[in-house]
Design a binder for these strands. Structure first.
Lengths: 213, 213, 213, 213
DNA sequence: CATGAATGAGCATTCATTCAT
DNA sequence: TATGAATGAATGCTCATTCAT
């Protein structure tokens, strides 16, 4: 049973659908050009509608971006939320890395949109970073620290561990063109995500020290 | 001994200084707002000169950006170039990571400018990525593969190893606001780079497996 | 006995009521913002109906304004029409002034709407001014001139007399905010109309010459 | 010796001239169409320059209007400021009426611009009305009251006296088209101001009571 | 009757770039 | 070199009006 707040504007099904269409188009455009580099015309064109019609659904360019960012953060945090205190530490972390990498593969535009916002100093979502995000990371860092104390994984800084997982996985979305340019046409195909998964698993588990005996 | 080709415009020292001033200002502005989000006015203001005067030194907005990007790539590749076949593998990689992290700390604007360009699909420097960058990475990947064959470091994918070093170190420049937001005021200060250095060294050398007795 | 011409659209009572609602709302909006400064949205909102619904009753924004102006002129001329040749001149003029002042008090929005139209050069009602209005004023000016000839009131220009009555009374509607700002909170209340009535009676009857003993 | 505040932007002679040109054009346009009813295009056209060029001199439409209103109020209050305690009351008032009527004749656009602003509730100059204007009127009302006490003019309300002078004189600017429509082509020419002057002098001095022998 | 949806034309403002001095 | 002035081409957004249901 859901209870929508009375402040939420009532919308018809068609309106909802059109709004989704616009958000999809905006994601495409914003993720490449950033907020200021994108024009309403581009988004309208991508959404297959006229500019004033688009503005009938979202009154301001910023409203589109805002809606996109709100949804984004939730999607973005989901994998971390699933990190489970109860499970086996190594398995949990391995799953987390895999899920993040899958997101980089399946939602690269979302990743780039987020990266764009952060690089520019997070002018629009700073409060969310300091609030919801920090709270969640603090919580999960405590879990990881528990695992370290119990000797299940090596003692190290849990925050920077999380950062490094973010960095390495999101890299395959945000820096995709560079990855493909470097790997070349033969290794830059879809297989690159499997290679990355294999590599990251190795890295995070064993590092670069040669196998003993 | 430098030999400028005859196509390079001759410039006086004063001219050169003004150009540097502009590039410095442009770096400041572009790295935050992106190319399209930045205006010549902002750059001129930051450089302390009038807009037409700025355009006397760089005829087009894009020229400034281009010049910046050209220099950038060189700076950016320098640490990798230093990776030396002859040295001890573990020491070499450790130094590389440290140098990259120092760059993230000392040249965050350059890092963000570069990230901006890549995220947008590298419309301006794609040729450099496929040329110079790929060549260098291929070369160094071969070196690393040699180390792996000789058993000095664990066998894994050298390309993805390089990507993960890029990702983890540049993260501290590009996603700086997020890092600071998550770490909070007590741990987000200047010490964060030392913490990161320590963590990354551990990660790349030993991974997360608990220490063997 | 009214006989509507066959060109007049037949309207149900409900239709008529809705039209009145719209006109009332439009008066409110137009009188403050002027024609071009007012939007159909504002009027629709004030009338409590949707924009397309409003346009069902008046097909064009201008139609609303036109209807409003037509009625307005009638209302506006009514007090002058009542000026009666037969009555006592001083009493008649005094009553006229009083009626005009009451209109300024009770129908300030109508007054402002009219003023707006005239200030802008009467683009929409010029014919009415040159026709109906001029005819009526000519007629009443003749009456007043008759009074002057018979020595009942001082000899002066009857047209400018009418203008000055219009000007002084309508001033309390059109320049209301200025009047209230100058009088301040203590004297700017409802009493201002009585003060004005007393003053204007004095002015028009005796002028500023000190009373003769 | 004038001392310009350091906040005033320095302007070249050409800039000053162009600004005057724009203000002149804006007066023409605003006084007819009101603020919202006027477009920058109209003003630019009237000033004989391109729209962006106009915006080079005034960055916002509102800035033009504001500048105009500031100057306006000063001009508008000048005649009242001249009302002199020392002079002969009747002469002083007669001169004031004459000066105001001359302003209505010579600066009708200014008058209409002012009327437009007041009718719309003075959204932009209310503070000036409650401040500067009220202060001046209070002061002059005291002067007039002094004259009344000394028996030089009839006892009446000085505030409403001032209002009626404003109303009757400005009427010939603000309601000019109506005045001319009513007077017709033979009496609506330039002579109408002289007729008005004669009439108002009579009205304010003697009222309508027939002359005593 | 009523309303959600759609749009062409318009409008204030910005911006890269050019021109003249 | 340096800058005040000028402009064409956007760009975000508004609004009267029409359409479809």
């Amino acid at each position: 049973m859901t209870m929508e707040g009375s402040t939420a504007p009532r919308r018809t099904r068609i309106q909802q659908e059109k709004r989704e269409l616009i958000l999809e188009a905006a994601l495409e455009v914003f993720s490449v050009n950033g907020f200021r580099g994108s024009t309403i015309d581009q988004i309208a064109e991508a959404a297959g509608m006229s500019k004033p019609n688009l503005l009938y659904y979202f009154r301001r360019k910023e409203d589109i971006h805002e809606t996109l960012m709100e949804r984004l953060l939730e999607t973005w945090l989901a994998p971390l939320r699933e990190l489970d205190d109860i499970g086996d530490p190594m398995t949990e972390l391995r799953s987390y890395i895999r899920r993040k990498l899958e997101m980089a593969r399946d939602f690269p535009r979302e990743s780039r949109l987020f990266a764009n916002e952060i690089i520019q100093g997070a002018p629009r979502i700073m409060p969310l970073l300091e609030g919801e995000l920090k709270t969640l990371v603090d919580e999960k860092a405590a879990v990881i620290r528990g695992w370290m104390r119990s000797g299940k994984i090596a003692k190290t800084d849990p925050y920077h561990l999380i950062f490094s997982i973010w960095a390495t996985t999101q890299h395959y979305a945000d820096f995709d063109v560079q990855v493909r340019a470097v790997l070349g046409s033969d290794r830059g195909g879809e297989g690159r995500f499997e290679d990355a998964a294999r590599f990251l698993e190795n890295l995070f588990i064993q590092g670069l020290l040669p196998k003993r005996d």
